[in-house]
Amino acid sequence: MQLTQSKREEYNTPSSSTSQPSPGPSSLANRINLSTWLRRIVFYLVLLGLWEGLARSGIWPSYLFPGPFDVLQSLIRGFQKGTFVTGILVSLKCLAIGYLISLSIGLVLGLLIGRIKAVADTVGSLVLGLQALPSVCWLPLAILWFGLNERAIIFVVVLGALFSITLGVEAGVKNTPPLYLRAARNLGARGFALYSQVILPAALPAILTGLKQGWTFAWRSLMAGELLYFSLSLGNLLQTGRDLNDASQVMAVMIVIIVVGVTIDQSLFAPFERRVRERWGLNQ
């Protein structure tokens, strides 16, 4: 044919703005990261110093305002006794069960609201209304229905995450470009394949936002619920700390709760979100 290989390659140049990052900018990014980390470390050291100074100043009694070293000791003790590990496991189990339930219901509900107008007009408005209610408000009712036990807490966790997930799925489905659906139908996609291979993947970035928000709400609802109910959970460790007048245990458990939350966010949601954004080309 008339075209030489070199000419053809010219046409096959990928769009330049979206090409792989070159070594130059990425090493620059590393340096920025390094100075960010340095700043962070200095900030936390200063914070710890201030805390220690305040604790030693004697303004408040040390059993009410323990210093970082007391809290560190409580932390170590908690993990040595195993109560913190048990607490983490008990809480995560509740969270996982509740979250998976809301995920399954939320996916179906969001799809129905997003695709069927009659459902959107009715159930959709209800979901929007219920979203405005902090899920802890369900706790009294949950206790009446299920008794003061794990099931009541899971119920509150489910309701904490459900509406965010539903609304995320709905938004994603509603914003699916009709062009993708037309193209898919044109290529022979029908029924369930349209949902599983086109609508859901097209909606994934929005669904992910809903999943993330849902998890945050679930985690908060869980902690609120656990404060009230006697078990071996993290929330209950906070409560026992209060009962024992042990502020350093309360602070230690708070730190554990923060670390668990950040870890789930960073190890589960952040990489997933990054992959999706990269693949969908949403990073430009």
Binding site: L179, A183, N186, L187, G188, Q197, V198
Partner: peptide, 28 residues
Amino acid sequence: TDRVLLFQEAALFPWLDVEHNVEFGLRQ
């Protein structure tokens, strides 16, 4: 599938790579 429309905006699926885009109709 005897008549396939090609759209002005290519209408490729952004969640699939080129290979899986091309495979889409075959998969159906």
